[in-house]
Amino acid sequence: MNYFLELFLGGLTRGSIYALIALGYTMVYGIIQLINFAHGEIYMIGAFTALIAASVLTVLGLNQLAIIVIAALAAIIYSAAYGYTIEKIAYKPLRNAPRLSVLISAIGMSLFLQNYVLLAQTSNFLPFPELIPEFEFLKPYSHLIRSSELFICMTTAVVMLLLTFLIKFTKIGKAMRAAAQDKTMAMLLGIDVNLVISVTFIVGSATAALGGVLIASHVGQINFYMGFIAGIKAFVAAVLGGIGSIPGAVLGSLILGWTESFFTGYISSDYEDAFAFLFLVLILIFRPSGILGKKEY
């Protein structure tokens, strides 16, 4: 039973990280129907920025709390800036081009960002400092859940609630929903669609950066290649939940996290990644609109 609980909580953490990345995917897809291949790379850049900021601040000799806050903020700001710039360079000039062109452009951008970090930084794994302190009250349960895991789950829940609020109740959220339904009509009604798309990229990138910082601190090491597989898996989660739907992305991520966790725990850990892809193929065959997706596809 303990083993089961351990796997369950591990899957929950895993799923929460996927959810933070999947939210960005699902929002971008909802508005411009593009699989933003570079999204995983933004997550990786967030982790790198946080590492760099944390190292600089450590050398400067700040206290732990300030380091956490500033490093996380730096990661979020820089990732948002990258997301904004990527959209302006690689996607905006292709707004009216065939979908295939935009997708190839996204793959190119992903390739570029990976190698940019590889060349400017390093190809090795970098150790990442544990930013999240151990909570006292969790000590008795430390064999089950680490405080970083709890922190990750809580952050995801908060971010999801905030995003739902943003989309349901604010003006920009309304504009996002309008643009997702019909871009031309939204423009006719006086919505600045380009601005809406930029905001979507910024918000999506910021959540991805948060995911990057949290997972890096949890796992303890980062690498220029970390974004690729995480990005693909988050995409699987977004499709599973129903792409374009925010609760769907979280639900899909959790399901993927649990299945992966139980699969590796009870069956085999060799085929962990292959299993995620197999899952994706099966979903797309049997229910392409996902669990919470819209029916008409």
Partner: peptide, 13 residues
């Protein structure tokens, strides 16, 4: 690889 990436984006645009 970085040049490949740039070429893909620029070619598409």
């Amino acid at each position: 690889m970085i040049i490949f990436g740039v070429v893909l984006v620029l070619m598409m645009i």
